[in-house]
Design a protein around this nucleic acid. Structure first.
Lengths: 254, 254
DNA sequence: ATCGAAATTGACGAGTTTTGACGAGAGGTG
DNA sequence: CACCTCTCGTCAAAACTCGTCAATTTCGAT
């Protein structure tokens, strides 16, 4: 039995059957518990599972930009699920850079949609999904953010139109301004807003009130904000004054 | 048992049955473990599998792409190496769709270059290479060919200029016309030619004379043809008449 | 046809990695 | 607190890898 093969089988067992004990895996694969334990150490180092006393459980999802993605996953998934429900089959969806849009992409599997994105993680997630018409925007590859930016991206966006834009953010200021920390992405985000019918901001509770040195847009550019906890009254007032609907996604479970 | 045949069988075994041990493959194919090991080394060099202790596993990803990629690997690599030597550090390189351009991309690791491409396999190959400034052209994702096409791609190309274009082909006709079988890619290839200073055609011996229903360009658009075996005299005459240099890549080793 | 160079294959031995076992210590449970 | 189970470190045996070498086949040239 090849080590590689064992690793695959262990991961499959954990993903389909939930957490499993070292002794069970040992019997199932016909090797000693010591070997299983060493396998688990390796797989944990690779971030593919989490060891618990007596066994292990599978790690949630894959690990594209794991450092950022692993915080507040449940909240982001709840928000993403709410957003996914807003989309009708056959529509076109523009997905922003960032982890929030990636969580949304994961919920779109099996749907019949056109997805337009400059988010390379979204591309990888949906690349194998036959039902999705996938359009990738051109641009310079930014490795650290797994995204495409630059004038090529903006040019492409001027030639397109989408039913929905789902926008991420680094934070929302009390006045309802959507902010971002990375300046180079702002022109892309603005072009996305122009290219879309309805603009939906995905922002978990930690984004209110938020920081970020560059302003992406004001509340007047938004149609809907999806979040997971009551927004502070001042921000909420600004949003409602601008005619933005604030949707609360189902309570996030830790 | 021919080495070529063994390689095919090994790859098939790995792709259908997952990771396999050297000893298993050895018994299955009726040759010694030493031979299998040497086969695995070769196949790993070609990027078709990954060796692990005790055996090997298939390189994940592109199944249909891999089928094409595994034929005439040595020839394509020799051509790619010759092409890579033509590029100077700091230059910008436009890489076409197809497996030939992918082999070239593999030779560019560690260089300081700007690489522009609509080839998703090239993107994946170079995505982790810090020295390469990577620009991805926009467009519709064509899953079966791992490429980006459409008017977005052409638009992007109109905004760019590269020092080199390395073009693949389905075949070259005796008159020197470069042909292709997939009609949708032809406008993209033409836009690439317009966006480049020097156009280099990469074509192994099997492409002369070649087929393909759509004409991409004539010999007058080419600057250099890199191949691996003497081109038939008629084609060669047409090329030289148009001022195209024909370069012969170092002898291909089977 | 015969010879010689080159490539391919199988075998052997040294060195490395992996595996299973044992015992001490830590963690969880009644 | 006692008991059981799990984890961790160490160690020897087994399996695997790598380099070298000889035997065989293939190919080109005389």
């Amino acid at each position: 039995m090849l080590a590689e093969r064992r690793h695959q089988l262990i991961l499959r067992a954990l993903r389909s059957g939930g957490p499993a004990a070292v002794t069970d895996l040992s019997e199932q694969l016909g090797v000693s518990p010591a070997t299983i334990r060493r396998d688990l150490v390796k797989l944990e180092e690779d971030g593919l599972l989490t060891r618990v006393h007596g066994g292990a459980r599978a790690e949630e999802g894959d690990q594209p930009f794991a450092e950022v993605a692993e915080v507040r996953v449940a909240e982001k998934d709840a928000i993403a699920a709410h957003a996914a429900a807003m989309i009708k089959d056959g529509q076109s969806v523009l997905l922003d850079i960032g982890t929030t849009a990636y969580r949304l992409a994961r919920q779109l599997h099996g749907r019949r949609l056109t997805v337009i994105t400059s988010n390379l993680v979204v591309y990888e997630e949906l690349a194998d999904d036959e039902g999705i018409e996938l359009v990738l925007l051109g641009g310079m590859v930014r490795r650290e953010y797994r995204s495409l930016v630059g004038f090529l991206t903006e040019d492409n966006l001027r030639q397109l139109h989408a039913d929905w834009l789902f926008l991420g953010t680094s934070g929302v200021r009390p006045g309802g301004q959507v902010m971002d920390t990375t300046v180079v992405e702002v022109p892309v985000k603005r072009a996305m807003i122009k290219a879309s019918d309805k603009v939906v901001l995905l922002a978990d509770a930690a984004k209110f009130p938020g920081t970020g040195m560059a302003k992406v847009c004001g509340p007047e550019d938004l149609d809907v904000v999806v979040t997971n906890a009551p927004v502070d009254p001042a921000t909420r007032a600004s949003l409602e004054e601008a005619g933005v609907a604030v949707a609360l996604a189902g309570k996030a479970q830790a």
